[in-house]
Design a protein around this nucleic acid. Structure first.
Length: 138
RNA sequence: GCGGAUGACCGGAUGGCUGCACUGCCGCUGGCAGUGAGGAAAGUCCGGACUCCACAGGACAACGGUGCCGGGUAACACCCGGCCGGGGAAACCCGAGGGACAGCGCCACAGAAAACAAACCGCCACUGAACAGCUGCGGCAUGAUCGGAGGUAAGGGUGAAACGGUGGUGUAAGAGACCACCGCAUUGGCGGUAACGUCGAUGGCACGGCAAGCCCCACCGGGAGCAAUGCCAAAUAGGGACGGGAGCGGCUCAGGCCAGUAAGGUGUCCUGCUUACCGCCGUCCGGGUCGGCAGCACGAGCAGCGUGGCAACACGGUGCCCAGAUGAAUGGCCAUCAAGAGCUCGCAAGAGCUUGAACAGAAUCCGGCUUACAGGUCAUCCGCACUG
């Protein structure tokens, strides 16, 4: 019920000219995950978001995003599904609401990441991004 | 038709929109096309392939595994066929199924007794005592009670298991003491490749169970694993080789300023000289972390055909190429259709609505085993009922 509007939203976002300066990249190195984990965190009903501004910001318009779903989330099928949902939500939200120059990590939770309504999952991500920015200011 | 047994199979289909990974192409911030999970991909329990290490001669010891027979296989703890034992009315199912005179050990509870014989309740005759009975008064083919010294293991009861079983002869009562059948042991014939079966003879019961307690016997096994292993190789630091490399000022009254610098150390005390060494600079070499590439998908491969074989399987020829990621792709939604399930209406045929799902995700690759699994399909067989 929500996904058709979501999918058209992403297609508009990726092709819109005002978002041309922002690009997304996946975090794959363990030391990057550990670096982000030292920053601020915010728990939502569907996941935990960690975020940190990169110190050596060589590329200004870049947002990096990583996903982690440990074995506590469930078996392999459930883990893959949780990771895909988080990645999809990040593709929708971060080009609009993410702060360039930041690294984010989304952590999946047992049962809740998979069962959470997807529209609410995207809203959670928006508020979490704002909260992290607010925490960083203080 | 109902109930059951066994074996095999499927694990929604089609279309659209939109994502992801890899490959190829193009007019390359992108676009197009192709391909993209399973029967268990799982558990990581066995067996291999392939690497490296060790030994390069295998054996012995230790440790681990396997354990009826024959066959299949690269190999196996797997598969096929058979044997034996147990279960079932049957189809069929289950079985770590070698050795208990090589040795050690154990046999709880119950029971009299648990391994070498014995005897609790019993049964039996003998004998002694007193009592009763009978008497011809000497006693007794008498009855029951108590004691003594024996015989016996049939019956009772316990147990997973009790020193062969059932029936008879026999006896005081009994007992393989004897007989018949069965079991057992030894032995011979026949059938079978064999496990084993079968027929007979002899013996006369001796030799309890547990080897899934240790053990013995036979056979098998060197160790570690794709994060194996090989190649390429940046920055930083460190190692080695070769080469290079000698400077000491000026201004200002002073404070200070300008210029230059790796310019300093070691060598028997000092001075001078020298580049002998370190530190310094350059070039090269080797090791090596992150990373990249190979290993890595044409293989004990898949489909169907033929031949041999009861079968597992083998052989032959035909066709096909079918995931390859590395914080790890293969997803989501919609529509239509289909097996099935539920509810309502209906005598029924049927109609309407809802649902349309399980276990679960490749990670070097194969052969197995085990475990999980919504719903469904097919074949063969057994029993019962019905029809003819």
């Amino acid at each position: 019920m929500i996904t058709p509007t979501d999918s058209t939203g992403t297609s508009e976002g990726s092709t819109s000219p005002d978002m041309a300066g922002i690009s997304l990249e996946r975090i794959k190195q363990r030391r990057d995950f550990l670096h982000v984990a030292e920053g601020a965190g915010w728990q939502t009903p569907g996941f935990i978001l960690q975020g940190r501004r990169r110190t050596a910001c060589n590329r200004e318009g870049l947002i990096r995003i990583g996903f982690t779903c440990s074995r506590k989330v469930g078996n392999a099928v459930v883990r893959n599904r949780a990771r895909r949902r988080l990645a999809h939500a990040a593709d929708i939200v971060l080009p609009h609401h993410g702060i360039p120059g930041w690294d984010y990590v989304m952590i999946g939770l047992r049962f809740r990441t998979v069962s959470r309504n997807f529209a609410k999952l995207t809203q959670d991500l928006e508020t979490a991004v704002r909260r992290l920015a607010h925490k960083e200011m203080r």
